[in-house]
Design a binder for these strands. Structure first.
Length: 679
RNA sequence: GGCGGGAUAGCUCAGAUGGUUAGAGCGUCGGAUUCAUAACCCGGAGGUCACGAGUUCAACUCUCGUUCCCGCUACCA
């Protein structure tokens, strides 16, 4: 077992083309933050690095769409993202960005070093080029007709209609997704990192030396290694990014995947210009990458290969990747606005950062994709944070104020039951530690919560409010111990719920604490004056949750409307065909629901000659049919009569079907004679 | 299509190397209690462990097949 003296913790760099949401928090930043806070509390040397990933094609596309520069886009989102992390107490030592000068310099240096060592191969190939916007097109930005299923909107890498993987050259009638113009083939040269040459040591390093990695991480790496590694491009033709720092590379930038992870290092360097190297090059430094499952191969294979090729860096000791968090049963999606955005959450739930941190940890996607629901959020707040933790603290403080004027009472003789309780909560410390050391944050938090359960049980069993009538000394001991448990809770929850721990610390008038004190009963001294008791957590009412659920339902509706596309036009018909249809205007004389039929309305229509009855299946959209009386509608007059629900319908009333399936009557703009023909 | 991960109580999830009655929290039902944000505390009910075969004295656990969800598939980032 290797000996480590310090730990470098990185968390995946969020891509700066949108704000961050609960999925980011649950998968990466909360677990990383818990771990880092835990190490800090233990007094270990630790550095927590984050930053925004600001290069790459999607940002340039977004900028073009909005008519601003890529720098404008990343400035906007970097600011929002950074603030969200600060607000949620994600305790980065540094949060910088890949557009920083330090990063540009370091990324260039690393590229150059590998280049000079002959660590890249150069290769030319033909690629699609958009002459209108003068840039090469990534596969994703070429669309055309799928050769397999005929879908007109297949992407250059895959047809989403039939699922087939494609090459851009497979597409029939390719078009640039950026400008819509027809792309041409053009030769271009790129640098590749020959991963195949790194395969042997990667295989040993991962498959033999790191069997302790999580199954999802280990499994995916094994899968890649078994398939055989291929050279991977590290440059691309683009004007947004870090220029490839060698001759003959005009117009080429580092591929964003190459540049982004170096951001971990350059952000460290920006913070510690003189001492950054020990965090990245010293053998006694333990490097950990917190990421989501979509990043596994990159952090376990590609980035290590880059670092090895450079030659002077250490490799990650573990990569605790999480699965994904879903929202109310659906995949979280930035583009579909299916997310709970952190900055919006704080507007709706000011001061409730810890509640979200708690819920996301309690239901963290550690072994498989999990689901976030608002109902669960409410339940965890009300029946765990409020009822178990908050309630215990409140009981302990209120009782102390009631019986001892808010001063820590003296500890008397311990009963066997007292000792038994103390023993239980000493266990909590070792259990939480063991779980945190293994990145099992969900269970660790549950174990911390057990401390509050122990406290509640202790009060219920010792019943100080009863004993107070006969034996105040005994009450003093009970409250003394209860307050010590409360102080322990502040420590145990600090990594998970930093804001609440701080609040509790103030209520208890504790100066400071560290992890070593956990499990001890001398955190508070007899006679210490406690602060004013406040509620640690508040109940969340049904109405609050309903508002959030409604917000999501609205989003869903808006998405459906946005996704709606008009049906393609039917084959042409002749004028003679059209003439066969006799469409007329008539006035509604009477209109009512057909009994025992959900959808049908029965119309009595004046058609200019006589009256006729027509049935129409629009009842759901006209809940008050009598309001239609007097209105003019269009109908097909020569439709074969048809019996519906025992009634003859003599024609068909015309409606337009909206995106959501809603039917809307077609009516003339101004009143016309009954029987007027529609031509 | 190929590969990887997953499918376990009403809900959200745990279940090293196969071994007697499969666990937790919430919810639910019953009891006790009143210091506390109608909260806490005690107890009960609830599962052919996705489906179908196979290996084994023994399978939630191993093998094969099927279905569904998620991810990766090397120029989406």
């Amino acid at each position: 077992m290797k000996e480590f003296n310090r730990t470098t913790v990185t968390s995946a760099l969020p891509y700066a083309n949108g704000p961050v949401h609960i999925g980011h928090l649950a998968g990466v930043y909360v677990p990383a933050d818990i771990y880092v806070r835990y190490l800090r509390l233990k007094g270990e040397e630790v550095l927590f690095v984050g930053g925004s990933d600001e290069h790459g094609v999607p940002i340039t596309i977004k900028a073009k769409k909005e008519g601003v520069t890529p720098q404008d886009i990343v400035n906007r989102y970097h600011t929002i993202i950074k603030k969200s992390f600060e607000d949620f107490g994600i305790s980065f030592d540094v949060y910088s960005r890949t557009t920083s000068p330090t990063h540009k310099e370091l990324a260039s240096d690393i590229f150059k070093t590998i280049y000079e060592k002959g660590g890249f191969i150069e290769q030319s190939s033909e690629q699609y080029y958009d002459e209108k916007v003068q840039q090469f097109l990534a596969d994703r930005y070429i669309t055309g007709k799928c050769p397999h299923c005929g879908n007109e909107n297949a992407y250059g890498d895959q047809c989403e209609s039939c699922g087939t993987s494609l090459n851009p050259t497979d597409l029939i009638n390719p078009k640039s997704a950026i400008s819509g113009s027809v792309p041409v083939m053009r030769e271009t040269k790129h640098w590749y990192l020959p991963l195949d040459q790194h395969e042997a040591w990667l295989r040993k390093w991962i498959l033999e030396d790191h069997k302790e990695w999580k199954p999802n991480v280990y499994g995916q790496c094994k899968s890649w290694l078994d398939m055989g590694l291929q050279p991977r491009a590290v440059s691309r033709d683009l004007d947004w990014g870090i220029p490839v720092p060698v001759e003959g590379a005009e117009g080429k930038v580092l591929y964003v995947w190459f540049d982004a992870p170096i951001g971990y290092i350059s952000n460290t360097k920006e913070l510690l210009p003189d001492s950054w190297e020990k965090w990245w090059k010293a053998e006694d430094t333990r490097l950990l990458h917190f990421i989501g499952k979509d990043n596994i191969v990159f952090h376990c294979i590609v980035f290590p290969a880059m670092l090895k090729a450079e030659g002077s860096y250490i490799l990650p000791e573990n990569v605790p990747a999480n699965e994904f968090l879903n929202l109310e049963g659906d995949k979280i999606s930035t583009s579909r606005n299916w997310a709970v955005w952190l900055h919006e959450y704080l507007e709706d739930f000011p001061g409730k950062q810890d509640v979200l941190r708690y819920v996301l940890t309690a239901n963290a996607p550690e072994t498989k994709d999990n689901d976030f629901t608002w109902k669960d959020f409410q339940a965890r707040n009300n029946s765990e944070l409020v009822a178990i933790y908050g309630n215990f603290i409140n009981r302990a403080l209120v009782l102390t104020h009631k019986f001892f004027d808010g001063k820590v009472p003296a500890l008397g003789e311990l009963t066997d039951y007292d000792k038994q309780t103390l023993e239980e909560f000493v266990h909590v410390k070792t259990d939480v530690e063991k779980l945190l050391d293994n990145f099992r944050f969900r269970d660790a938090q549950k174990e911390a919560m057990n401390l509050a359960r122990i406290g509640n049980k202790y009060l219920a069993d010792t019943e100080p409010w009863k004993v107070a009538k006969t034996d105040m000394e005994r009450v003093a001991t009970i409250m003394h111990l209860s307050l010590q448990i409360a102080a322990n809770l502040a420590i145990a929850f600090e990594p998970f719920l930093p804001f609440s721990s701080e609040k509790l610390r103030c209520m208890l008038n504790l100066n400071s604490f560290d992890w070593k004190q956990l499990g001890h009963t001398n955190l508070l001294k007899t006679g210490d004056q406690l602060g004013t008791p406040e509620l640690l957590f508040e109940k969340i009412e049904d109405i609050t949750i309903e508002v959030q659920v409604q917000k999501l339902l609205d989003t869903k509706k808006a998405n459906e409307a946005a996704a709606w596309k008009a049906n393609s036009v039917k084959p042409n018909i002749s004028f003679e065909d059209f003439q066969k249809i006799d469409i007329r205007v008539g006035t509604v004389l009477d209109c009512q629901k057909v009994p025992k039929a959900d959808k049908l309305l029965q119309f009595r229509i004046a058609d200019g000659i006589e009256e006729r009855t027509i049935l129409s299946g629009i009842a759901a959209y006209y809940p008050n049919p009598e309001e239609l009386i007097g209105a003019q509608v269009c109908f097909i007059a020569n439709f074969e009569p048809r019996k519906l629900r025992g009634i003859f319908s003599e024609g068909m009333i015309l409606s337009a079907e909206d995106a959501d399936g809603k039917l809307v009557l077609i009516q003339p703009k101004s009143t016309v004679s009954n029987g007027a023909e529609v031509k």
